[in-house]
């Protein structure tokens, strides 16, 4: 179950809305932070904290790309390959991540260090190609630059 502080956090968020269902997305983010990904137990915790059926929690959470339903690496690489990034070489970077780190789209490195998610636009087109590593944004990417950046995430 949730930690006391997570439950308190959810209660505070709940108070911002006219009903508890509206706190579902924020509560799922908290569950993901607490459990690493949306394990069955994490979704049960959300359901009981908000008093809504767990089938609804599962149904809603699977609609949204940023809610993870399987184990992810310690660090999440989210690389954009939409048009502005694609025409500036993003696909070559996907190949680079595959060859250098063994990362497939949606996959995880054998040591559990990284996961890769191919993103639609993340709103950094002026410095394309771009990626997020966890919550940190990086632009004007090259293979060399990615290697340097990823070295900081152990």
């Amino acid at each position: 179950m949730f930690s006391k502080s997570a439950i308190k956090e959810i209660e505070e968020i709940r108070a911002k809305y006219p009903d508890s269902r509206s706190a579902l997305l924020p509560a799922l983010y908290i569950a993901q932070r607490e459990y690493g990904w949306l394990t069955p137990e994490a979704m049960e915790s959300v359901a009981s904290a908000l008093n809504i059926p767990s089938a609804i929690v599962k149904g809603v959470s699977t609609f949204y790309a940023m809610f993870k339903h399987k184990q992810m690496g310690r660090h999440l690489i989210q690389l954009c390959t939409n048009i502005s990034c694609m025409i500036l070489g993003a696909e070559t970077l996907v190949d680079f991540l595959k060859n250098k780190y063994g990362l497939e789209e949606g996959g995880i490195t054998p040591n559990g260090r990284f996961s890769l998610v191919i993103m639609e636009c993340i709103g950094g087109c002026d410095v394309a190609p771009v990626m997020l590593v966890d919550n940190d944004f990086y632009g004007n990417l090259t293979e060399e630059k990615i290697e340097n950046i990823l070295g900081r995430y152990q």
């Binding site: 939409n82 048009i83 502005s84 639609e120 636009c121 709103g123 950094g124 087109c125 002026d126």
Partner: peptide, 11 residues
């Protein structure tokens, strides 16, 4: 929810 690919004006 600025998500239209190519858009980064609200950022």
């Amino acid at each position: 929810d600025e998500g239209e690919p190519g858009t980064f004006k609200d950022r």
